[in-house]
């Protein structure tokens, strides 16, 4: 579903991503974890070309994004949803308008827009908040609106950049529940960047661990814990199975 082929990215002299090879399978929930500055957010942002790679190819949904014209890229992005740590809702639009705008951008048939918006808001449990503005919502509710917005165009992929990092533990669990539900109900491939091990363990099928712009390891997560896929150092797997986040490790 998502293939990164020898992708590199530098910011001025700092090499954030060093020739990464990564395949994310259709229908999985894939976690990307790592310490601050490891390049995990950059890696995610390469998947919809919010960051343009210096080298390498990015393929999503069978399309090589790196080869598309800007118009084709805009089209391709409409089937790649994205949510953010700080939600990034338009503060001057109502909840309804925030979701509707993504349908407007995709030229979704006008007559069906209202019912589609309400359907998405219902899915995230906010159907009674249509006329509210983001400032009137809690963090968790804002993220639900962002999810509804990302969901409106029936994306194949949902990219989540630290989706729960500004939320409290209860709200985090709720949002992860919503994401899990999206994966189960619609088969949407989800990629989640997080620095919290708990988040990854509770929802992901597979995890990629990043360190200093490289993939340290990719592991399968079983219900009972984490199994090693590649033959990487033992201590690292132990760390993965421990509670707590990698920032402190």
């Amino acid at each position: 579903m998502i293939k990164l082929h020898n992708v590199s990215k530098s910011f001025s002299r700092f090499q954030a991503i060093k020739s990464i090879l990564l395949t994310i399978n259709k229908g999985e929930i894939h976690g990307i974890i790592g310490a601050s500055g490891a390049g995990k957010s950059t890696l995610l942002r390469l998947m919809n070309l919010l960051e343009v790679p210096d080298e390498g190819e990015v393929e999503v949904n069978g399309q090589k994004l790196t080869n598309l014209s800007s118009k084709e890229l805009r089209q391709a992005r409409k089937s790649i949803g994205m949510i953010f740590q700080h939600f990034n809702l338009v503060a001057n639009k109502t909840v309804y308008e925030n979701v509707a705008v993504s349908l407007e951008l995709a030229n979704f048939p006008k007559k069906e827009r209202r019912s589609r918006v309400l359907e998405c808001l219902q899915f995230v449990g906010l159907e009674s908040f249509v006329e509210k503005y983001p400032a009137q919502l809690s963090g968790g509710q804002k993220q639900r609106v962002a999810i509804a917005r990302a969901l409106a165009n029936n994306p194949e992929v949902l990219l989540c950049d630290e989706p729960t990092s500004s939320l409290d533990p209860n709200t985090t669990a709720e949002i992860l529940g919503v994401l899990d539900n999206i994966n189960k109900s619609f088969g949407v491939t989800i990629v989640i960047v997080s620095h919290e091990m708990e988040v990854i363990k509770s929802i992901c099928n597979r995890v990629t661990v990043m360190a200093a712009g490289e993939i340290y390891d990719t592991a399968l997560i079983e219900p009972k814990g984490i199994q090693n896929l590649d033959n990487s150092p033992r201590y690292f797997i132990e760390q993965l199975t421990k509670d707590g986040d990698l920032d402190h490790a």
Binding site: L73, R74, G81, N88, V90, R149
Partner: peptide, 14 residues
């Protein structure tokens, strides 16, 4: 906020 611009770009806005 820069994030709002990013959200717009990620949704495929011209």
């Amino acid at each position: 906020p820069k994030g709002v611009m990013e959200a717009a770009i990620s949704m495929g806005a011209s």
